[in-house]
Design a protein around this nucleic acid. Sequence first.
DNA 1: TCCAATAGTACAGAAAAGTGTACTACAATA
DNA 2: TATTGTAGTACACTTTTCTGTACTATTGGA
Lengths: 119, 119
Amino acid sequence: MSEDIQPIPSTSVGLCQLPCPMPDIVSLVGGKWKLIILQILVFDGTQRFGALKRRLDGVSQTMLTNQLRALENDRLITRKVYPEVPPRVEYSATPLAKDMEDVFYAMRDWWKRNNDPVE
Amino acid sequence: MSEDIQPIPSTSVGLCQLPCPMPDIVSLVGGKWKLIILQILVFDGTQRFGALKRRLDGVSQTMLTNQLRALENDRLITRKVYPEVPPRVEYSATPLAKDMEDVFYAMRDWWKRNNDPVE
DNA sequence: TCCAATAGTACAGAAAAGTGTACTACAATA
DNA sequence: TATTGTAGTACACTTTTCTGTACTATTGGA
């Protein structure tokens, strides 16, 4: 990965005392959809709006648009519009988002360790 | 760590197609406070209600109680009441929550890599 | 006698998050 | 000519999340 990683825009209000970026992280990727969107873009690559909508079965058009705009503002994804008709818009994870891979792995592994053995 | 790890109660509706536990994870530890509470209990150990409230500066009494109850129901924390006056109640991370350490490390590292260099 | 301290509960209400429906533009296709 | 497909926007609405205020119980100490 040779692209530059942009710094995370700080939206922190610093609730937690220790060196604890958790409130910042939560405000950046919290909510029902953002982590799911990021995971798809990071692991499955660029996706069109419609493809995302289909995979996030249940998300409303409005909400998906909102979340994508927010992620774009926070530089976690990029949006590319093709001047075609019907319109085509592609969303991709930025290097900053791709750099979250380990977070996703850690979550998945935690889930596996503690959930899969049950069946 | 020799204590048994209890299985995660599944609340999944399986929105995401791949082997993607993200919706489950979000429904378990999503929201403004849960990850912060867990991080404190995992890394700093058992805390009394009042201590938690002070460290989560800004959280309302009601919300803190709610979140603690939810985490307890999901077996991520335990609650121990001492029959004293004034009352003393201590909250601790369960092995299941302690097993999330790597998730916290991954998040902190991601934040460090992409945020600290800015200053 | 009155107050402090702790961990709550009850309730009203505000704010945020999320949904559903209807609408748009425009070219290609049937 | 009517229909399809895409990526939206606008707006009303519901649901969930979160906060603020007031209240409780009990004991020890001033």
